[in-house]
């Protein structure tokens, strides 16, 4: 015998210190924020409260992007193209959408962050990353 059951539960997640700063900068300044660990000499994207490698707290917030580099990508049917992108100035990549049109993008190509007009302090305040055409447009 098979039984199908649904569950429906609302959750409310706190972004915390660095997460809030990242989301607020998206909302208010159309700006990507990373965190710089001066010990490891690495800039992490997105911003975070402590260095994942050395554990150091009190990292410096730095502006990253708006340009970015494509690291890897995949097509999710009906959902779009998802990509790992490394914002300029950052040493790590973050996951977001790649905006079309897309014609066999190669890792390393140049991208540009695209913000939505309506922003609420949410990761989707970023609409995605668009491919920068070779003529610079």
């Amino acid at each position: 015998m098979i039984r199908e059951e649904a569950i429906k539960i609302p959750f409310q997640y706190a972004a915390g210190t660095a997460g809030s700063e990242f989301l607020i900068n998206l909302r208010d300044h159309r700006q990507l924020t990373g965190s710089r660990c001066s010990d490891c000499e690495r800039t992490l994207a997105p911003a975070r409260a402590y260095c994942p490698d050395c554990g150091r707290e009190g990292l410096h917030s730095v502006n990253i992007g708006p340009g970015a580099e494509l690291v890897s990508w995949t097509i999710v049917p009906d959902k779009g193209v998802f990509a790992l992108v490394r914002p300029d100035g950052a040493d790590t990549a973050m996951l977001h959408k790649l905006l079309g049109p897309i014609d066999d993008p190669q890792p390393g190509i140049r991208l540009q962050v695209v913000f939505r007009e309506e922003r609420s302090g949410h990761i989707n305040d970023i609409e995605g990353f668009a491919i920068v055409q070779e003529n610079g447009e």
Binding site: G16, T17, A49
Partner: peptide
Amino acid sequence: RDDVSQPELVR
């Protein structure tokens, strides 16, 4: 404790 995220709370 919505001043911190889950990992920050653990930290």
